[in-house]
Write a protein that binds this DNA or RNA. Structure first.
Length: 162
DNA sequence: GCCAACGTTGGC
DNA sequence: GCCAACGTTGGC
């Protein structure tokens, strides 16, 4: 039996890489993740086809900007081996690249940002990791019902009865 | 720009 | 293996 499709939230600083950049490119390697828990999610649990809420952090406002999908399995992150990259890690080697990435494909940009404030205020989104204080993980699992809810909010249906 | 939260590093 | 120092994240 095929593994069930999963859902994720992936953070990016729009000054560095935004939903518009992903839309323009169509697809992009999600490189530069340098946190072990986030890496493990990519390496061990992400599958092609998984849904992604693309979250703009350190933004005005911060929040979910659109939807993407995981378009390939985890593979070594070449930027860890690139001395000129800001993501270079001197401990990484071709034999032990340490860090991985997944490729991510654009699906849709919401007509508006679903702000962190809204995420925190919505009664149906209790338990979302991103609501937790001090939650810095750049890749977080999202429950299917939460994913659907945020997509509905982003498309402008935030006031649908619960 | 502040600072709380928290992951990583390194001395011991 | 402990834990203080340090660095980064990210909301505000």
């Amino acid at each position: 039996m095929a593994a069930r499709r999963r859902y994720w939230l992936m953070k990016t600083e729009p000054d560095a890489f935004s939903i518009d950049d992903l839309e323009r490119l169509g697809e992009s390697p999600w490189d530069g993740v340098r946190n072990y828990q986030s890496r493990n999610f990519m390496r061990d649990e992400m599958r092609a086809g998984d849904g992604v809420l693309l979250y703009h952090s350190s933004a005005n406002p911060s929040g979910v900007a659109g939807v993407a999908r995981v378009s390939g399995p985890a593979r070594p992150d070449p930027s860890a081996l690139d001395r000129k990259s800001r993501y270079f890690d001197p401990k990484a080697t071709p034999q032990n690249p340490i860090w991985v990435l997944v490729d991510v494909a654009f699906i849709e940009k919401f007509p508006r940002i679903v702000t962190l404030e809204e995420l925190k205020a919505d009664g149906e989104l209790e338990g979302m990791w991103v609501r937790r204080r001090g939650m810095r993980l750049s890749i977080q699992p999202v429950e299917p019902a939460h994913f659907r809810r945020v997509v509905a909010m982003g498309r402008g249906k935030a006031n649908l009865a619960p």
